[in-house]
Every structure is written in structure tokens, then in C-alpha cells.
Write a protein that binds this DNA or RNA. Structure first.
Lengths: 223, 223, 223, 223
DNA sequence: TATGAATGAGCATTCATTCAT
DNA sequence: TATGAATGAATGCTCATTCAT
């Protein structure tokens, strides 16, 4: 039995906005800076994401860094934008592949996500986002926007599989499924206590997700 | 239909270690300091947890603060200890109540936890712990120790309900259940987009948890 | 050939003023404090001579320390007083021994001093005094008072040996001799590059000192 | 009778390492900072050598100061390096002047040194170095390195004057001579009790030094 | 574009001191 | 006598930012 059929979530690279007419050198420098910031965030957390640290990491002088990103905030928001856009792009790719039957598609999407959760990058990055989103509305907005898009794949698959289900039920079920998967990164993510059991836990989760999806399949419009 | 039967998780207060022979005044001051630090962490995140901020918040001079906590680290670790101890104590209390049949007990425990997750305190506190635990082994150790104790209640209930289940299956299922609940705080926690749907999502989750618990109930010792 | 005939300079112990009617316990505590301060000064220098350090070193609370010495200055000045008094007492002892012929006595005194200079205590203590005396007139006064008393032994011996010498000549010669000996602690003191050659260097010095003492022995009152 | 024939020891200025490619403005600022640190050390001792004090003294903001010297240690070590290098350069200059007969050269070098010892700068600076070198191996290393170079001039002159003397004898004699001169700064240095008699004491010392140098002039290779 | 220089705010920490108990 | 508690000043340092070159 093949675990998954689709392509992997590919979010390893930072996605930068195309800057029409931009100068090649400056763009490259900006990319280098964002990558260094990204690595720093991953490795040592948001608190260690200082301009100095970034400058040192990519062997640039601070003056130059502030030339490209006039303020810390501009760098951070560019970074988060690039990160989140990367995940969004990855999900957009998945959505396109609709050849599979709905249930298989649901399982496929969830497997993709849970695989990604085992990734060093995702395991490290998202808790930072969650923590920040608690205090920074801007981060929160952007993050939930991304989650909505990611969840769209799940909602779509569930709706296709069980057309009779209430919209609200499907929505809440998709929240449950998404929550459950995201929560896994805490215990079975990269370097976490149950990282070696991630595949097995994922199968338990998948089974529970299918059960939850079916639960309201034929429900009457009561409530 | 009553949702829950047991007492609520009571973790609102900071639990301080008994300090034999300690003077009352100093103890009170230390409590005030920790509470202020706690509130600051909740309100503005770990980055805002500065000694100055704490001192200002509780109207104490910094000199006095460093008298009671000689270093920032000592304050932070005392704070985290108090926080985590609080949760541990709360779970210890739940464990004691074993009058209910196992399945009801499992549901009860999960409902308690999911209720707690809707709490401002828990919603704000845990993402900080998750983020920190990615970079600070000390926080990680303490946090997973706490999760192990919390999970013990779930493991125990599942095992009682389905004695034939493999130990490993039960363990992984409890990880799934715990992950799923923790993940809920991101989407349905206090102030989160689906906070008003938390109860409903919790019921979906509960159903899925029971399904997952039963799944391996009668498994043969294969594998 | 015996190097020296007299008793060694005995300045190892801190000499405290007798406190008539003082309470035994408090005196003991004061002694302990001063000893700790003394050791700290020796080991880590004047900059490390903090009340905190002293309190820690003798396992006392700071409150108690400031009870006995209300200010840092009072502790420091008590310490320096005890130290300097110790050296003065030691020299007073030497002076008493006047059975030897003057030249031998001069050599004896110088040998005693140069031996003492090889001591860890003296090697470490005096540079601190010299440095402090540059900026602290109080230390300077007390230190030169001590040096005057110490030099008295040399002056007396030289005068006995060469009664015809001018007072001024003898005085300046004694300054030269004292300077030369004190300077030895920098190069041949305890732990210094030439510490193992101290005895030999001392003999060279002694020879030079005798030469210097004789030089103006029969001078005419010119000048 | 001329006391000395050579040029004076010229160590009044701080010698900074050439910084290739350095910008002029930064170099000037660094020089100003070091000079202020130097003056502060002279005037109030090592304990008063604080970054704030230096910043205030040269009317710079502390931020700028830590831009040029990222840590206190870097400033202090740069300062000591400049100081010691200054003395080394001064001695290197003296060494070059070898037109005089050896004995005159020895006297000349010693006079230069003893003149320098009467200087405010040297009188104040060296006791600080002696005290620090007792607790700071780095300062000790650098200081004795300097003394070795300074002593080389004396050793060379003595050896030229008395070629038959043992190497070791010459070495120890030079240590005695150096010690004696250095010790003079305590009693006859700038602002010291016998500062007005420094020239006379220096003559006494010179006479003794010549005597000491001759003492082992014709020794047989015994030992 | 990129670097050097300068600034000001904020940080944790150390310290001597004062006071109540 | 001795300890606990509290205060205020000072220290070294990090940081984001601004500006001149």
C-alpha cells in the first residue's frame, strides 16, 4: 500500500516577490539576507532574530542591511511574508491535483501535511508563528489567511466525498483535522520525543479524520 | 446531557515551592514578582519578559527584584516551574477521580483539557513554551515531563477501557489525542478565529478520540 | 656563611587593635571578616575587594557585615591599618635586636626585608598599596609612615657603621636601598620571573648596598 | 658635568598600530578614546577606568565608544598595548645609540630610565601595571616582555663593558639594576616624598650599579 | 550599493547602603 | 548581633536606527 500518491509539499525555499526592473545584485543580496534571517529564526528563535545577527551571518555590514531593509520590522515582515507565501504556494500546487477520488485526496493532503510537519523547518517555524500571533495581529492575520488556504484543500475533499454534509459541519471538521495535525508537530515533529513514531501516529490520525469526516455525512439540517 | 462531570482544571494560580523558614514578607514579594512576570508573558510574550518590565508592573525597584531573583534566568526558571507545576498539580487532581467508568473518564479528562485550552491563560502560555522548547533544552525537558504526566490520565483511561490493546498502540493513540487537543488552542483557543465553536469542535474531537481508542481494542499481538 | 642571623619578619597575621571591653563574639567576627578581605585582596586584587565578596567568602550575610563595618571604606581602612600595623610591628621587633655590629645589622635587616619580599603576601599586597597610594592620599600617608619606620632600621645601622656620614647622605642612601629592595618584588617576588634567583640577586644587592653606604662615609660637610 | 648625553625617553604619546585601509575619522576617534582612557588611568587609577568615564571625558556617546571598542576588555587591552608599545619603542631608540663607550652607555641608559621614572606618567602608570599583573596573566606577559626589551639595553652595555663576566651574572645584575630603578618610582617618583632628591638618589644608584656591574667582571667560569 | 560612524534607548547585573526585624 | 528586605546608582553591553561618505 502506497502511503501517498501526490508530490511532496515543497516549501524549503523562500519565495520572494518578483521585483520587476529590480537590479539583479540588490535582489540577490536581499535573498541572502532573508535566507540568513530565516536560518537564524529556525536555529535560535525569534529572540535571536537581530539585525546584527543577520548581518554577521551573511557577512554583510549593518549599514548595507539597513539599506535593503530600512527597519527591523520591514525585514521581519518580508521574511514572514516569504515564509507564508511559500506554504501557500505549496498548497496551491496540491489543490491542482484533483484526479484522485475525494477520500483518497483527503488522505493524500493530510499525509502531505503530516509529512511536512516532521520537517525541521516546519517544526521550528510554526511554534514561533503561533507564539507571535498571540501578540502581533499582523502576524496573526497573515497566518490565519494561510491556514484558510491550506484548509481549503481539506474542506474541498471532504465536501466532495460527503456532499450531504452541512457546510458548517465540514468546516468545523476541517478545523479539527487541521488542529490535530498542527498539534502533532509538538510531539512528533523534528527532534521531538515521538518523531520516530510520526508515520504510525499519522495513520491513527488519518483513521480518526476519516471517521470524523463521515460522522456528519448524512446529517439532517437539525441544529 | 451534561458535558462533564468532574471539577474544572484549576491552574489559574501560580504554585510556589514551600520555602521552609522563609520570611512571610519576602515570600509575598516573590509571589507578586512571579505573578507580574506571568501576566507580562501572557500579555506580551516572552520577548517582553524583561526585569524592568516586571519591576515596573509590580511597582518594585529593580534592585529589590534582583535581590529576590539574582538573575533573569532564575526568575524565568522559577516562573516556568511555577506554571508547569500548576498544570501538573491540576492533572494530579483529576487522576484521583476514578469513580467513573473508563470511557466516561476518558471523555471527562479530554473535556477538561479542551476546556482549559479555551482559557486565555493556556492559549497564550503554551505557544510560548512550544517556541522556547525548540531552542531551550531546559524548557523542553520540563515541558515534556509535564505532558507525560498529563497524558498519563489519558493512557490510564484508555487502558482501562480496552485492556486488550497493545501498550504501544495506547501510547501512540494518547499522543494523537494530546496533539489534537493542543493543536486546538491555535484555532479555537481564547481569542482565536474559532473560539466560539470550541465546544462543537471538542465534540467532534471527542468522537474521533473514542474511535481511535477503540480501533486497536482487540488487536492480536502481531507485529 | 649564614645568610641571616635574626628572626624572620613575621607579618603573616593580621594585627587587630585591642578593643578593651569589646564583646568576644563581635571581635571574632570582625577578625574573620578582615581575614577574608585580606585574602580576597591578595588573591584577586583591590577591584575584587567588594563587600559582597567578603560576605560570601566568610559565609556571613551582608547585613551582618555592614553591622560590623558600616561602610566599605571603614572595612578597607581597617584592613589596610591592620596590614600596615603588622609590618610596623615586625620592624619594631627587628630594631630591638641590636647586639650585632652595625654592618652585619644592616645586612641582616636587608636580608630580612628581601626574604619577606619573596613572600606571596608581600609580593601581592604592596603593588596594590603603591597603586592605591597614587590616588588615595590616606593610603599614601599611612604607607609612607610605615616605610619611614621600616627605613629607620636601615638608617640607624648605616649611621652606626659610618658615624661621619652626613645625615642627608644616609637618608638618601637609605631611600636608594629601600627602593631597590621594594623594586625586587616586581621581578623576583613570589611567582615572578626571577623568583628562583631571589637569593642570588639579594646578594648582589647587598654588596651594592654596602658599597653605597660606605661611599659617603668620610665625606666632608661640603654641599 | 653633563648628566646625560642621549635624547630623552620619549614615551609621552600613545602609539597606535597602523590600521591599513582604516578611515581617518575612525582612527582619530579611536586615538581620542585611548588618550582619554590613558588620562583617566593616570589620574584616578584602574578602578576609575570605566567606559562611561572615558565617554564623558572625550565627549562621546557610549554607543560610539562601544562601536570602536566592542568591549571594555578590548579597550583596556588596546590601551595597555599602546602604552607598553610606547615604552618599547622608546627603548628601541636608545639601543640604536651605541657611539658611547659601554660604561658611559650604561650610565646613560640608567639615567634616561631614572629620569623617566620621575615623570608623572611613568610614576602613575607602572604601579597600576604591577598591581594588575599580579592577577591578570595577560598584563603580566605583556609587561615582562617589555621589561625584557628594556633590560636588553642594560645587559648589552654591561656585557660590552665587562666581556669576561658570566652571562648569568650579567643577567642577575641587570635584574638588580632594573628592580632598583623601578622601585625608585615609589619613593622618588612624581609627587612622591623624595621626588626633589631624585637626581641625587639617582647618582647614588648609578654608583652602586657600576659597582655591581664590575663585581663579577673578572670572574672565573666556576660554578 | 555598500561601508563607516555615531546615537540613544534599553538590557541584565553588581554594588554599597539603609532600614526593619 | 545577625538576617532579610529594599533602594538607587553605576557598570558593561546589545540593539535598531540615522547619517555621511
Amino acid at each position: 500500500m502506497t502511503r501517498r500518491s501526490g508530490p511532496p509539499l515543497h516549501v524549503a525555499q523562500l519565495t520572494l516577490p518578483d521585483r520587476m526592473g529590480g537590479y539583479a545584485k540588490g535582489d540577490r543580496t536581499r535573498r541572502v539576507i532573508l535566507q540568513a534571517a530565516h536560518d537564524l529564526l529556525l536555529e535560535h528563535g525569534y529572540a535571536a532574530l537581530t539585525l546584527r545577527g543577520v548581518a554577521t551571518a551573511c557577512n554583510l555590514r549593518m549599514g548595507n542591511l539597513t539599506y535593503h531593509f530600512p527597519s527591523r520590522e520591514s525585514l521581519v515582515s518580508a521574511l514572514f511574508d516569504a515564509i507564508i507565501r511559500g506554504y501557500e504556494d505549496a498548497f496551491a500546487e496540491i489543490m491542482a491535483d484533483q484526479k484522485l477520488p475525494p477520500v483518497a485526496r483527503l488522505m493524500d493532503v493530510c499525509r502531505l501535511i503530516m509529512d511536512d510537519i516532521g520537517t525541521r523547518r516546519t517544526t521550528r517555524l510554526f511554534p514561533e508563528l503561533w507564539a507571535l500571533s498571540n501578540h502581533d495581529p499582523f502576524v496573526a492575520d497573515r497566518m490565519y489567511e494561510m491556514y484558510d488556504r491550506a484548509r481549503a484543500a481539506i474542506v474541498s475533499a471532504v465536501r466532495c466525498a460527503y456532499p450531504a454534509a452541512h457546510e458548517r459541519s465540514v468546516d468545523l471538521t476541517s478545523i479539527f483535522i487541521t488542529s490535530a495535525m498542527e498539534g502533532m508537530s509538538i510531539f512528533a515533529g523534528y527532534g521531538k520525543p515521538y518523531q520516530d513514531d510520526r508515520a504510525e501516529i499519522a495513520e491513527i490520525a488519518l483513521d480518526a479524520f476519516l471517521h470524523a469526516s463521515q460522522a456528519h455525512a448524512d446529517e439532517s439540517p437539525a441544529r
